[in-house]
């Protein structure tokens, strides 16, 4: 018979035993880097020669047109892309949720399929589809939508449109799956009663479906926003005209914060402190936007 130790202590020791390996790794590869990078954001200098610069990096942010362009681009992307994508995903999910719909499974699988492709792979495939004489411009011309080829790769405006189209392609099905799962958890009799009561279809959607899906809509909004704020793979691979120079798209039109941080760190003469400062701009944006979205969702209650 083992020496009697208190049961509570036995379970407590076991509890630590189970979580310590993960906590150790997270301390080394997560917490330590977070703190280090915060510390670095107050350092200035090039390469490994760094010294304390106080708020110098923050001042530099306000004077750096490239940073401001990257910030504008990043914000532009999620402000336009996230609502388009989520609306599309919700709309598709509601249509697919109809139990009488034929081929629903097949259509759902097809729309979900883009999630299987890696970000880099789909980026290069889009790149090949959107070249000047490529398949997309030809298709648009064939249906008479355009008179000349759209300069997706060389015009800043169209390059941004391309990026938004591409991201929407990749993630709509992903978000749709969340909505579908939530819709399937809704008791159908709620809709049946509403129909018997004569509630019209649009009112059923806005008064019943949307409020019941609120937690999922919030979840997808937050995750999509965080994802878009960290945009890197696509920005660097779809329209990257010249990676060796570190530009992203014509006139840096698809330069995002993450690409800029990468360039600051690994492309030019490294500016670690300043790059860390820019990375904390993303942290602040993520925190701010998540907070705003949670508050908005709560107030609507």
């Amino acid at each position: 018979m083992p020496a009697p130790i208190s049961l509570r202590r036995y379970y407590d020791v076991n509890g630590w035993f189970f979580v310590v390996p993960a906590l150790g790794l997270i301390a080394v590869f997560m917490i330590y880097p977070i703190i280090w990078s915060l510390w670095m954001s107050f350092q200035t200098g090039r390469g490994l020669v760094m010294h304390f610069g106080g708020l110098a990096n923050i001042v530099r942010l306000t004077e750096d047109p490239v940073f401001q362009l990257a910030l504008t681009n990043t914000i532009l992307f999620f402000v336009i892309q996230v609502p388009i994508m989520l609306t599309l995903a919700l709309f598709t999910a509601v249509l697919l949720d109809d139990p009488k719909l034929k081929f629903a499974g097949l259509i759902r699988t097809a729309i979900f399929l883009p999630c299987v492709m890696s970000l880099v792979v789909y980026s290069v495939i889009f790149k090949s589809m959107f070249v000047d004489d490529g398949v997309v411009n030809r298709a648009l011309a064939a249906v008479g939508a355009i008179s000349g080829p759209i300069p997706w790769m060389s015009d800043p405006f169209w390059a941004r449109v391309l990026l938004i189209v591409a991201i929407t392609w990749r993630w709509t099905g992903y978000n749709m799956i969340f909505y579908l799962a939530a819709l399937q958890n809704i008791d159908r009799s709620i809709y049946e009663v509403a129909r018997i009561d004569g509630v019209p279809a649009t009112a059923r959607f806005f008064r019943l479906t949307v409020p019941m899906l609120k937690p999922v809509i919030l979840f997808t909004t937050v995750t999509s926003t965080i994802g878009t704020l960290q945009l890197f793979d696509e920005a660097r691979n779809i329209v990257a005209s010249d990676t060796s120079a570190g530009t992203a798209g014509p006139g840096d039109s698809v330069l995002t914060l993450s690409v800029y941080i990468y360039n600051l760190t690994f492309r030019f003469m490294p500016s670690f402190g300043y790059a860390a400062t820019v990375s904390y701009v993303i942290v602040i944006l993520v925190a701010l936007l998540s907070f705003v979205q949670f508050t908005v969702a709560r107030e609507r209650d």
Partner: peptide, 29 residues
């Protein structure tokens, strides 16, 4: 399975790390 106030706090901190963008980590890493 092994709930304790100390570990619950650590877990809450752990959840926050999910939100941290990789850009913050990459230079120190």
């Amino acid at each position: 399975i092994f709930r304790s106030p100390g570990r619950d706090w650590l877990y809450a901190g752990l959840l926050l790390t999910i939100m941290i963008p990789f850009a913050v980590l990459m230079i120190p890493l």
